[in-house]
Design a protein around this nucleic acid. Sequence first.
DNA 1: GATTTACTTCGGCCACGGCCGAACTATCGA
DNA 2: TCGATAGTTCGGCCGTGGCCGAAGTAAATC
Lengths: 222, 222
Amino acid sequence: MAEVAALVGDPARANMLCALLGGRALTATELAYSAGVSPQTTSGHLNKLFSARLLVMMKQGRHRYYRLAGPHVAQMLESIMNVALTGPPRFQPKSRLDEKMRHARTCYDHIAGVVGVGLADAMAAHGFVVLGDEAGEITASGIEFLDRLGVDLTAAKSKRRVFCRPCLDWTERRPHIGGAVGAALAHRCFDLKWIERVRDTRALMITPAGRRGLLEYFDLSV
Amino acid sequence: MAEVAALVGDPARANMLCALLGGRALTATELAYSAGVSPQTTSGHLNKLFSARLLVMMKQGRHRYYRLAGPHVAQMLESIMNVALTGPPRFQPKSRLDEKMRHARTCYDHIAGVVGVGLADAMAAHGFVVLGDEAGEITASGIEFLDRLGVDLTAAKSKRRVFCRPCLDWTERRPHIGGAVGAALAHRCFDLKWIERVRDTRALMITPAGRRGLLEYFDLSV
DNA sequence: GATTTACTTCGGCCACGGCCGAACTATCGA
DNA sequence: TCGATAGTTCGGCCGTGGCCGAAGTAAATC
């Protein structure tokens, strides 16, 4: 256990893992950049994370793509972040990029940020979902609503990640919808081209169609 | 974030935190023993954990009692343990004590081990609860059942830890019932004197009354 | 085949941090 | 008042591990 925590406990590796929390697979060089260390150092770190099975790797030509090994790793990182937020306040520089990240971003496989929390709030306000601190529940009308929206809940259920999990948003400090339902919802939003990834970041762009859709279905203006 | 992980990443501190996962407040000396380091070293570690707000401290005479700062810390530790279990296998000596721990123990504020998983299975079999990998739900008949047993669910609800959370048991590798419901259930079991803490450990003893009660209410023989 | 790019291994430097011995403070009990 | 017990701070030792420069492989490009 201490070994796993120690792996996350190094700043360089923590940065890499955070970058991978975006949900996409990244190359060693990209991870070197986001960690702010040299390629050699990165290589060593990635080896450790891989050997400990926190990451999985795919060779593709001369690139090596690394991804988080699964939702359990993402959830661990979230819970560590959550504890870190309750700790003594620390100064953290705000950049232009952070603004976009704060607005909408991917959190492993679902939507976070102002928009993510807004979605959760809207669904809660409509009685589609009940969110507590440690668990959430989709209501019957929520299932119907998501079905109408075209979200594939049966596939989500079959994955044994049955219900929705409230995921504490580390910028908004309030829960958004994670788990299988969150993933399915985000997937549908991508399919509908409501949201698009911003190149080289975890940030998400809301498309004009997305604005209309969010307003129509969720009464949410962004 | 890396700071928090690094705190857990030291073997001595990890041992202390694991000991505190039992849910009780422990003195510095007790923690020194469970970490296997000298009192001076322990003092330093506890200071760090306290400053980072992973622990809270209560002075009582010449003793200083340390506890986990809250459920969020317990959940973080669990999720790290969970990832550690998916890693490459490691040899871990089995002792006499471990046998008892494996059978029944506290997991922060609820029941874990063979008995904990058995309780969860029994409740699932009776349709009192539906457990997924990331979330759980108490059914209407489950609420009624727990009420009959004398578990105070209204108090649990008011804590904003509304529903039950599946907590992956690190010995059984299957979920048991955590969250507010798990805590309330464990509390009631203590009240009924079905279970008792074993001195100086996290292990739990099932009393004769407990055997009868578990059989009667849960169809569970231990 | 030659060059560039992606990533690796090797080797050595260096500092952070865990550890304990020693000495100090505070509370309890007689 | 005087140990005894719980816990502390201080100082120095030492090992682990992160870091980069240099040099090496593997795949794409010319």
